[in-house]
């Protein structure tokens, strides 16, 4: 357990100055700021809406693009960036020649990528709430404070976070197998486009495509009663977690059999 902890701390130490780490913070911040700016500038069109609808209009563009594109691409990029750090410096060999269990080294990277995704989702939730109340400071006519969205926002982003676990495991495995930008990134991107179309067309097998889980999750949230009555665990989330676990375990056994070059 200690070796897992120190490996995780090392992952943070190594990546804290990289785009992967900062994108986890800056992406939610910049998106929320841009939308907030839009609300402040175009407030006269929005004054007529009740607080609940104001929150809905704020979250809708984020959740919509998040499910179909942003979350999968963010995960694909983060996974690439964290594993590529080792390829770039040719440091896999030094990592695996340290007196640490291979499982700790492998798991810490996987957990760190999950942590970065969690951080992004958590910050999205925080920044959305802050932005809503911030907008009201500039435009008191927009009564964001008339509705408390905290629970629904956190539940939505928890659900979206869980839906990404399957993609993380697949991308992580691909990045371990290929010291290449194009193969894992290109394949992941193509699968995301395909899965997004499949999910939006309600293709019955979309539920088995990991890249479709975020899209399906967002659709489930949007289609729920009043947009607020939804369960965190549904079929897409269950498939995401199962996919994550199975690929994670398979990846470890593949790693054990591989030579580190």
């Amino acid at each position: 357990m200690r070796s897992l902890y120190i490996s995780f701390i090392s992952e943070f130490y190594k990546s804290r100055k990289t785009l992967a780490f900062w994108s986890a913070i800056l992406l939610p911040l910049s998106i929320c700021l841009i939308i907030a700016l839009g609300f402040i500038l175009k407030y006269d069109n929005l004054v007529k809406y009740p607080p609940q609808m104001l929150w809905f209009y704020f979250i809708y563009p984020i959740a919509g693009i998040m499910g179909s594109l942003l979350l999968p691409i963010l995960v694909i990029y983060n996974t690439y960036a964290i594993t590529n750090m080792e390829y770039k410096g040719d440091t896999w060999k030094s990592l695996f020649s340290l007196p640490l269990p291979k499982l700790s080294i492998y798991s810490s990277k996987f957990i760190y990528i999950i942590f970065l995704t969690f951080l992004t989702m958590f910050l999205f939730a925080i920044f959305i709430i802050m932005a809503g109340h911030g907008i009201e400071l500039f435009r008191p006519q927009l009564k964001f404070s008339g509705f408390n969205p905290t629970e629904i926002i956190f539940r939505s982003f928890t659900k979206m976070f869980l839906s990404s676990i399957g993609i993380i495991s697949l991308q992580f495995l691909m990045n371990l197998l290929w010291n290449d930008f194009l193969k894992p990134f290109g394949l992941g991107f193509l699968m995301t486009i395909f899965a997004s179309i499949a999910a939006n067309m309600n293709w019955k097998y979309a539920i088995y495509i990991p890249q479709a889980f975020p899209s399906l999750t967002v659709m489930n949230i949007m289609n729920s009663k009043k947009g607020i009555e939804f369960a965190i665990f549904d079929q897409a989330i269950a498939h995401s977690l199962i996919c994550g676990l199975v690929v994670f375990v398979a990846g470890y056994f593949i790693l054990l059999k591989r030579n580190i070059k």
Binding site: K88, G89, D90
Partner: peptide, 11 residues
């Protein structure tokens, strides 16, 4: 150990 070229993080 030091194997082949040094394994270092350039950033």
């Amino acid at each position: 150990s030091l194997v082949e070229q040094p394994a270092i993080y350039g950033h």
